[in-house]
Design a protein around this nucleic acid. Sequence first.
DNA 1: AACACCGGGGTCTGCCATTCTC
DNA 2: GAGAATGGCAGACCCCGGTGTT
Length: 381
Amino acid sequence: MMAMLCIPALLYFARSSNTALLKQRDFLLLPHFTQVLSSRPGGKRLNKGPENKSLVENLATMGVDVVMARRRQPGVLRKAVTNEIGLAHFLQSKGASRSAVAGIISRFPRSITRTEAHLEERWALWRSIFRTDSEIVKILERSPESFFRSSDNANLEKNILFLGSLGLGSRELHRLLTTAPRTFSNSVELNRQVVELLQDLCVSLGGDKPEQFAKAIISKNLYILIRSTTRIKANVAFLRKELHLSDGELLSLLHGHGADVLGLSTEHLKRNLSSVLEKLKSLSCQKSDVKKLIISHAPVLLVSPNNLNSKLDCLVEGGVHIRQILEKPKILDFSVENIKTRLAELNEIGYDFKKNGISILDSSRKRFEAKLERLTASIEE
DNA sequence: AACACCGGGGTCTGCCATTCTC
DNA sequence: GAGAATGGCAGACCCCGGTGTT
């Protein structure tokens, strides 16, 4: 099936491409193609030359959105030597469709400057983490930049080793590369800085297992390594200051789901925290209540003010006491829609939250429905 | 059987600014 | 000095189920 899709497309590319260009492109397989660049006849490297017309035509034939490509990386279109045919061939051999290839080039034109050897090598490195080619193709379709932005394969290899050395197993590396592929294109030095920041943070808070701490934060917040250290530091400082957290409290906050809040933009974190404070104050809670809430369930800081306020309003109007919410904050993870539906269904059968508690609200859909059915049945008896 | 506690898991790029390299 | 490489930012949740206890 896949082969049937690939072959006609390849023939199509081959037919439609300029043979002179193809010959030039063969030089890409040689180590010093910059010599080709500087020796090109009449090449004026100091001026922004015109676009390479046959390249642009080639790309258009391949279905590339040239306007988008030009907007994103105009310099690529001026290059004399590129490897779009080789790239298309390569990606299609891995199972990418023609339109996927076109989309990849449109969104990250520099991808066509990578040589065959480079592509093979990089792919092999990714395959050391992924089980199949199609998994990688999916990521490339999603985010071409993650794969192509860096041409430094040695750095990628070092990253894999470095991340592995942190105690992240193959399963976690897989999740990391799937979810935040950019991490692997960071310089290994940048990743190291974030890891060291986390470890130092752990030690400064009196924790005794900095390596495990850093690993735990990364597993819980797969985006942490693509956040700047400036931001992480600012967020830690902000939380500590605003909530008057002790070292121990901060450590336990971060050990829980708190890892996620480290990645928020600091403005966002400020806004959300002040919103929670204000809203809960209006529901006659003390600041200490908010502090407890956040330590036990930091994800409330991830919920946007409007959203969180809606959830709280629904719950309170639906007969849930704010104290119950503070004790079981997990219900705030659920969507407003879900909360509304559940409240309405429970209201219909006269469910009494005062008497029966609110655990029923934060169970999974399956469990909730099963419970509801039982309750309905017992009422009908 | 029913419940409560608790951890895990999916998802998340595309653009701009700055620095590096030739 | 152009293009390549790299760093950083904005935006802003929801849900499932294993396991131990009653």
